[in-house]
Design a protein around this nucleic acid. Structure first.
Lengths: 350, 350
DNA sequence: CTGTTAGCGCTTTCAT
DNA sequence: ATGAAAGCGCTAACAG
C-alpha cells in the first residue's frame, strides 16, 4: 500500500462501479438494505470490502440530509479548566447521557477566550448548542445566537432567543445563607469569579465590583439578603473571590481570612469543593466547624456527605440532560430546575 | 417571524443575490476578506445581516474542503461512566487542550456498548480518532480501523494500523508491587474489570479468568511478578475485581476482604481512588497503613499526596495530549509514556 | 478585484 | 427492485 495512505478516499460511486450496480443501489445497501435484493447487496458489500470503503461519507451525508446528528457544547473561556471543575464535569455527563441515548455526537467546541472564538463556533458542524454558564459580556453568546439553531444556556445569562436552564440561585443562596450566618457576627462568602478575567480579590461585599457572571451575581445577592435577614450589613460581610472552583485555592484563601485581624465566624461558599478547602484550613488552624466557624457548600456532591456539610442540593447532571434535550428537541424553553437545602452538621443548630 | 423558524437556512447564494454580487465575492468575504473591495464586503455583510445569515455552512465546507477540523473520541462502552472516572476526565482534558490549541472540535462519539456502536463511529464527521482504553474484543476498534483515518488507542489493545500511547503497565505494576508486598504474607490486589461485562469477583490470582482489558491484564501480570519476587505464589494472592473506578466501591470491597477469614496485610490497587477507598475501610475497621496493611495506588493524583499514598506516577493528561497530537498529526506511532514510582508513607519501610 | 465553471460525495425525487 | 437526473451549499481553479 502507498505509504502516503488515505490519499483519496474511496467513494460510493467507485464501489457501485466495481460491484456493477448503480450508485443508488449501493446507497440503498447502506441506508435501506430492505430495498435491495440480497444478491445486489452482497455484490456491493464485497466491492466495498475489496476497496476498503468505510461507508458513506458523514459530511456529504450531513450536507444532503441537512442535519449533523451532533450537539455542540460551549464550555466557556478556558476549555482545559472545564475538565478540572467537578461541576462542569457532572453537567457534561448529563449532556453526554442524552446524546448517547439518541445517537447524537457531542462536540466540545474549541473555545479558548481568544478573539477567534466566534469563528470557531461558526465553523462547527452541529445541529444545536448547549452553553455552560458564562458571563454577560461573553462574545460567544452572540456567535451562538447568530447560528440560528436551537441553543440553551445553562445558569445564565438569559439571552433573547436562547433557552435557559438553571435554578433560582438567589433564592437558594438566601436559604442556605440563613443557615450559614445563623448566630454569626462576622460572616464571609467564598465566591466564584466575578468576570471572565477571573481576578482574585477580598473585599467587603459593599465594595465589590458588579459580577458579570449571572450565577455568581445571583448567589451574592442571595447571600447579601441572608446577611440582611440576620441583621448584618453587606459592608460587614467579607467576600473572597476565587479564580477557580478548586479545594486547594479555597483552602489558601480561607487560611488568609482566618489569619486576618477580623477572622470570619461563618463562611458560605459557592461549591462543596470550596467548602472542603475551608474545612481543611480550619483544621490546619486548630479550629472546627460549626463551633468556631459555620461552613456551607453548594451542590451536595459526594464530598458534602463525607464532610457532613450543609449545602444546596441540585443536580448538575440532570440540568445538563435538560439542556441537551431542549437543544435537540428544537425547543428553547426557560426551565427552572429544582434545588433544596440539605442541613447537616457544618452549621450551628438553632 | 415565522414561528416554525429555521425552516430553511439562508444560503450564500441568497446573500450574494441580495448584495448584488457574485457568489464568489460573497464567499471571499468570509474566507479571504483581503481579496474583496471594502465596498463589496460591506454590501455582502449588510445583506447577510438583513437575511440573518450566520456564515458558510460547516457541513458544505467540510465536504468541499475534505476535512472537518474535528477529532473523534471514543470513550468505551458506557459514555456516562467516563465522566465519573477521574482518570478518563484527566485524559480528556489533555485531548481537549490540544484540540483547543489547534482550533479543532472534539467530538465525543455516542458509543454505548450496544450493537449499533459501529454505525455511530461510521456516521461521525471527524478527521481522526482517539480511543480510550478498551478490551481486546471491543467491536469499536474494527469500526475505527475501517474508517481509514488516523487513529490512536490509549492504553490498549494494540491494533494493526492504529497508534498506541501508554506506559509499560507491567513494569510499573511490578515496581510498585514490590513496595506494596514488601514484608507482606497475605497480599491482595484491587483490580479494574477484566472484561466489558465488568463483573465483580474475588478469587485467588491463579483462579482468575483472563483479562480482556490489556491495561488490567498487564498490571495483574506485574503484580503477579512482584508477588513472585517476594516469594509468594499467585495462588496465594487474593484479587478483588471492582466494576468501576470509584472510591466507594473499593471501600466496600476492601471492607469485605478485611472481614474475611484471611484478611490481607497488603493491598495493591489500580488507582488512587481505589486506594483511598481501602484506606477508609481500614480506618473503619480500626486498622491503619502501613502497620496493619500496606496500600498502594496508581496515577499520583492529588488524593495520593493528601493521603500519603505510595503510587505510580503517570500523566494521563499528557497522554491524552499525545494521543490527540498523533491523531491530528496524521501519524499513528507507538508511543511509550513515562512513569515512576512515588514512595510515600502508605507502604512499609525497608 | 470579480465572475464562471465544475464538482466535493451523497441521497431525494421520479421514473422504469 | 433498480436507475438517471438533480442539487444539498460551498469553494478551488481558472479566467477576465
Amino acid at each position: 500500500m502507498n505509504p502516503r495512505a488515505a490519499a483519496r478516499r474511496t467513494t460510493l460511486a467507485q464501489v457501485a462501479a466495481r460491484a456493477g450496480v448503480s450508485v443508488m443501489t449501493a446507497s440503498y445497501t447502506y441506508n435501506q438494505p430492505g430495498r435491495v435484493s440480497a444478491e445486489a447487496r452482497a455484490k456491493v458489500l464485497a466491492a466495498a470490502a475489496e476497496l476498503g470503503y468505510g461507508g458513506p461519507d458523514p459530511s456529504a451525508r450531513s450536507l444532503r440530509h441537512g442535519s449533523t446528528r451532533t450537539l455542540g457544547v460551549v464550555l466557556g473561556e478556558h476549555l482545559s479548566y472545564a475538565f478540572e471543575d467537578p461541576q462542569a464535569v457532572s453537567f457534561l455527563a448529563g449532556v453526554a447521557e442524552v446524546c448517547a441515548e439518541r445517537g447524537y455526537g457531542m462536540t466540545i467546541l474549541p473555545v479558548t477566550g481568544a478573539a477567534d472564538d466566534g469563528e470557531r463556533v461558526r465553523t462547527a458542524a452541529v445541529d444545536g448548542y448547549v452553553v455552560w454558564t458564562t458571563a454577560d459580556d461573553d462574545p460567544v453568546l452572540a456567535a451562538v445566537r447568530a447560528m440560528r439553531r436551537p441553543a440553551v444556556v445553562h445558569g445564565g445569562p438569559a439571552v433573547e432567543g436562547l433557552g435557559l436552564v438553571g435554578i433560582d440561585n438567589r433564592a437558594a443562596a438566601r436559604a442556605v445563607g440563613a443557615l450559614a450566618f445563623h448566630g454569626a457576627r462576622r460572616p464571609a462568602v467564598l465566591s466564584f469569579p466575578l468576570s471572565r478575567e477571573r481576578a482574585t480579590m477580598v473585599a467587603a461585599g459593599a465594595d465589590l465590583p458588579d459580577a458579570l457572571f449571572p450565577v455568581t451575581r445571583d448567589r451574592l445577592a442571595g447571600y447579601r439578603q441572608a446577611a440582611s435577614d440576620a441583621g448584618i450589613g453587606w459592608d460587614e460581610v467579607t467576600v473572597a473571590v476565587c479564580a477557580r472552583n478548586a479545594a486547594a485555592e479555597a483552602e489558601a484563601v480561607a487560611a488568609g481570612l482566618l489569619a486576618s485581624p477580623r477572622p470570619p465566624d461563618a463562611v458560605a461558599a459557592m461549591s462543596d469543593e470550596q467548602a472542603a478547602g475551608v474545612l481543611r484550613a480550619l483544621d490546619a488552624a486548630g479550629l472546627s466547624a460549626p463551633a468556631d466557624v459555620a461552613v456551607t457548600g453548594w451542590d451536595d456532591a459526594a464530598v458534602a456527605r463525607e464532610l457532613d456539610l450543609t449545602t444546596v442540593a441540585q443536580s448538575l447532571r440532570s440540568q445538563g440532560a435538560a439542556c441537551a434535550r431542549a437543544a435537540l428537541g428544537g425547543k428553547a424553553p426557560g426551565t427552572v430546575a429544582e434545588w433544596s437545602v440539605v442541613r447537616r452538621g457544618s452549621t450551628r443548630p438553632d
